[in-house]
Amino acid sequence: MSTLAQTQPGVRKTLWRPSNALVTFIVFMLPAFVLFTTFVMLPMIDAAHFSLYKWSGYGAPTDFVGTQNFERLASNRIFLHSLGNSLKIIAASMFIQLPLALGLALLIYEKRWSNTVFRLVFFLPYILAEVASGLIWSFIFDGDYGLAAEIARWLNIENFYILANRQWAFTAILVVIVWKYFGFHMMIYIAGLQSIPKDQIEAITIDGAGPLQVIRYVKLPMLKPAIIMSVFFSVIGALQIFDIIIPLTNGGPSNSTHTIVSFLYTFGLQRMNIGFGSAVGIVLFVCCATFAFTYRATFQREKGAAR
């Protein structure tokens, strides 16, 4: 951190001389650094430490077991299933949620009052608390009293319990996740679309391009930074889904709808296996960090090559 160079060009040299840069750096960086260290780095190091122990959370961890927690994890069928579920969420958010968000953004990005109303409506689920939306949907899916029961009554079929069905419970959860989070990505795309210069669209329209060609050759290329960002957020967010699972199925039926984080919570915290839970956390962190850095490296190299 000591190799401070001069400030960037464009900043007035008289105000920010190189000697001031160090002072600025220390003063401005210190609060963020202290907070980050206490609340992110230290707990992470603690977790890495605990993951090597068999520990219930009481007293000091003494029962050193080496990598046994990780070995148990690798052979745990429920964990592997929850890993698969997290991958399913990633797939659903990439191939259903993002196209849906993009399509809606293309439909309503223009500044008109009717579009503003739609934008507000589509953004509502994202504002809602995760647990609240989980509860709302658990009422919808309820086969005894909810909307599902009503539909069954209309169609004159036997009551069905989606959330208690091993085959369909996770699909129901995917529906809720898409329902809740597509608005966020839609807003990213709308912001991107609104910043496209109008003359570019006008120019290609004069050249004879139809609406689809405008989307294909102007809007999508211009949206690329927004898409890169929203894919990043959706993957990281998908790996961390937790609050929606708990009110909907609580991981059931027979542990088939756990995600990594709900698995961590159920088998690590609720059953007082802090060591085991920390191992899950470390695995999750490694997944996220690997993804984040590969993703960045991939897309920045592409950016550099394009220049």
């Binding site: 750096f25 401005f28 963020a32």
Partner: peptide, 18 residues
């Protein structure tokens, strides 16, 4: 706003190792 704004200034305007 305060903490990350200050840190973001460092990232945007200063060059440093790491």
């Amino acid at each position: 706003l305060i903490v990350s704004g200050m840190a973001a200034y460092c990232f945007a305007q200063l060059h440093f190792f790491g």
